[in-house]
Design a protein around this nucleic acid. Structure first.
Lengths: 152, 152
DNA sequence: TTGCATCCGGTACCCGGGTACAGGCTTATC
DNA sequence: GATAAGCCTGTACCCGGGTACCGGATGCAA
């Protein structure tokens, strides 16, 4: 059932095979190893990495977690605690992550609103807008002193 | 009308005054100068920068544009084209930026949905989830081969 | 056994938006 | 004229997630 034929009688997959099947760069494998996301694999006599089967799947899990918005540090921690015992932690972290995502969405929505105002008002310049009721001043939160200088 | 008293008879504001009034770091002023957001100001005889009035306001405009989601490169370009003629361009760019923001919001919403599934299903592990109908496999887009290996 | 593909470790670089530090010069005030 | 505060240039570093390049060593098939 393995997607690509692993040569018979070899102890594991080579970096290139893992990288190819997982769709990542070889350098990324070594990077993840440094970051603690991948355990240091066994080596051939000559020092080449031989990855256990399942590594490709693990990489896909990592990528999935990244798509959920977890940082590599967070993924490493989740994998690590999960290695020792089932991680009820994951559920709480996902809940926290939802709050983070909601905050980001709220920020973006505010930005969207401000942009719509700029469009609706037909602003034509960042610094010398000629439109009536220009919303730009609203965007500059506080102190907006006299613009007598050579601004533009 | 200037917010803080600029000493009489001096040719402009010093970096520290501008930075303080605009709420940015002095280094940031030099950084913006390198990036082309601030024109190189006149200098005192000893080589100290003397900023024209309006610089503080310009910095506030830059910060406002950043809050709208424009990168410094984009702001520099908008300021630059605006310097030569009113920039009807700005409106179009704001419209484009709204599309970008919408795309980001859509991404985040998809992530949110996936996270909610993880929470609702009560997943307890990234790699060895024991929950029924675990949504994790859905998250790994494509090929998810056999997990017979020593994944966790 | 030869030849080429692959892999090794180490180091440096990329993106964006700044910040920090060192060592020396200017400006302002007493 | 001394002294402190402020500013100068240049360089290096921070965050996160990788990528690129080098010279040398291995793996594997013909």
């Amino acid at each position: 059932m393995t997607s690509l034929p692993e040569p018979e009688g070899r102890a594991g997959l080579r970096s290139g095979e893992v990288a190819g099947q997982a769709g990542v760069n070889i350098q990324t494998l070594r990077y993840y190893e440094r970051r603690g996301l991948l355990a240091p694999p066994d080596r051939s006599l000559g020092g080449h990495r031989l990855y256990p089967p399942g590594t490709v799947a693990l990489l896909q899990v990592i990528k999935a977690a990244q798509r959920l918005g977890f940082t590599l540090d967070e993924v490493a921690e989740l994998l690590d605690t999960g290695r020792r015992h089932p991680t009820p932690d994951l559920r709480q972290r996902a809940i926290d992550k939802i709050a983070e995502v909601d905050a980001k969405i709220a920020d973006l929505t505010a930005i969207r609103t401000a942009l719509t105002e700029v469009v609706d008002a037909r602003c034509d310049s960042l610094t010398n807008c000629t439109c009536a009721d220009c919303p730009m001043p609203m965007l500059t939160i506080g102190t907006r002193p006299d613009l007598d200088g050579d601004l533009a």
